[in-house]
Nucleic acid binder design. Structure first.
Lengths: 310, 310
DNA sequence: TTCAAGTGATAGGAAAATCCTATCATTAAA
DNA sequence: TTTAATGATAGGATTTTCCTATCACTTGAA
């Protein structure tokens, strides 16, 4: 674009004049004075270096150039109206396309229960969901590539605000023909010497599991770290060890752990804490807070049969 | 559109800020001061009633609303660029779509020889040609529905300017088996008592023919007035009378008057005068004058074999 | 911890643009 | 000839836009 562009007002005035075919009538319709209109149309002609309007003592006519540019002027105004409409849309509800990151260990098992309810509550809300490892998501959030992140705690950044959604118990998963399967109630000491499979270190559950194993005297399988819950399940079925899986995963019908047994370990409270995270100073933080509250209540109602702690 | 729209500048500033992700850098690129940018972006946000940009001490990020509206803003600017381009195009040569009216008695026989040359001279020139009766065209021109008219004189309006292009002789057309066909040279008195066919009164040649007939003692056929030169030719072939046809028509190869003879009448100078007409105060009058000159020279070179008077 | 460099926000005032009222000159129509 | 309507112009008030100087804060390096 060159040094100077016309003003939107000038275009509006020009279109108004073209429609009214008279400076005075147009000025009246546009609620401005006739000299103002004269001056602005003249300014427009000056920036474009063209004569747009043919003045006579009996009204005005467009020049050929004026007729051609009238089309363009209308298009510009049209686009501007589109922008205003869009802004109004966004204003009417919390709008815009929010980019949310989720962990692959929770997204597939949590979001299907949440998204319908969100769209019902905020019909104009658009979500773009991206799955990635929590550490990566945290960085994306900090650097503005994401607006919201839904991951298990913990995370450690002071410029981020988070709202805890709920706590999800982890349950021990063992092969059906494993010795421990015979036990109804598994006690902490049973785990001593067992091999425990975990996710990659980038996943937040890793460190939790690690300290737990250290406490119990169980070993962490260093060689095979899973990158998905499904992978962990497969590895347990192949007798590579035991693992802790989140209740939501176990509950999800698609992944009924056939050939596996699920057990609680007495006196051990292992759970992951899901949180919704955003930048501390985000202008939408008010809305994000509402969103967290809504998600919480949605989980409560839609996942009432799952043991979750709020 | 509501009461107030953003400014083009504000949109440009906003886009610049979105691209630079920092008020200072953006301000530098946009050649404005940082406080100005801050203020204008704030104004934009106020008009739209939205927060577009998330400010932090380490640069800026777009909010979801900001990202969505960035698209719209770019579109508006795009359209504005289109307008500027169009204006530049029109500026580079005489441009815009000129609406020209021609008489059906001259357009089909004259324009094919002219238009190619016009487009060669002014490559950006666009012409929209409309055929109609001269009287109608004159009104359309006066009321701004046309920019230019190419018709035979005369016409009588003081607010119109015209430039004579050339004079075109009219020639007598008679059936091959008519008595006068035997004569090599036809003299004025031969026409006494003959029936002369003319176009409708709305055509400019009518009055000329009328006064000539009165002078020679010939009769005008009141019952059958033609509305096209072809119609006149047909009527002559059906022995309904004689007529004067313009040289250009006779010359046009498509209408070689088979079965008819063309004769000049001695001492009679009947011709029609073609003129290019425009509104006296039209801003393009300078260009129209050039156009007339160009048409004249095109006719001279492309129709040199036709006897025309300049 | 300290310091330097970078961020956006703010204040105050200058410059430019926008707009208005009042008026003029010309034209078209009554 | 008069009357009403047209667009152009002058002068001045108002609003917007913009700049300089400065502040408050954060970040990252020393």
């Amino acid at each position: 674009m060159s040094l100077e562009t016309p003003t939107i007002k000038q275009l509006e005035y020009f279109v108004g004049l073209a429609e009214a075919t008279s400076f005075r009538r147009a000025a009246e319709r546009l609620n401005i004075s006739q000299p103002t209109l004269t001056a602005q149309v003249y300014n427009l002609e000056k920036v474009l270096n063209l004569t747009l309007v043919e003045r006579s003592r009996s009204g005005t006519t467009l020049t050929p150039a004026g007729r051609d540019l009238l089309v363009n002027a209308r298009q510009v105004i049209e686009e501007m109206c589109g922008l205003m409409d869009q802004a109004a849309m966004i204003n009417s509800g919390p709008g815009g396309t929010f980019r949310m990151g989720v962990s692959p260990t929770s997204g597939p098992y949590l979001l299907p229960h949440i998204l319908p309810g969100l769209h019902q509550a905020y019909s104009s809300l658009k979500l773009y969901v991206r799955e990635n490892m929590p550490k990566t998501l945290e960085l994306d959030l900090l650097e503005g590539r994401l607006d919201l992140v839904l991951i298990p705690k913990p995370f450690d950044n002071s410029s981020l605000t988070s709202e805890v959604l709920f706590h999800e118990p982890m349950q021990l998963v063992i092969p059906e023909d494993h010795d421990l399967s015979k036990l109804k109630k598994i006690k902490p000491h049973h785990l001593r010497g067992q091999t425990i499979l975990t996710l990659l270190e980038q996943y937040s559950s890793y460190h939790q599991t690690e300290s737990l194993c250290a406490e119990l005297g169980a070993n962490i399988a260093r060689d095979y770290e899973g990158s998905s819950l499904d992978a962990l399940r497969q590895m347990v079925m192949m007798r590579m060890g035991l693992t802790f899986l989140p209740t939501l995963y176990i509950h999800s019908e698609i992944h009924q752990p056939q050939g596996l047994n699920v057990r609680e370990v007495e006196k051990i409270k292992l759970y992951r804490t899901h949180a919704l995270v955003w930048r501390r100073n985000s202008p939408n933080r008010g809305f994000y807070r509402q969103l967290a509250e809504l998600i919480r209540s949605l989980v409560k109602t839609h996942l009432s049969e799952v043991k979750l702690i709020f």
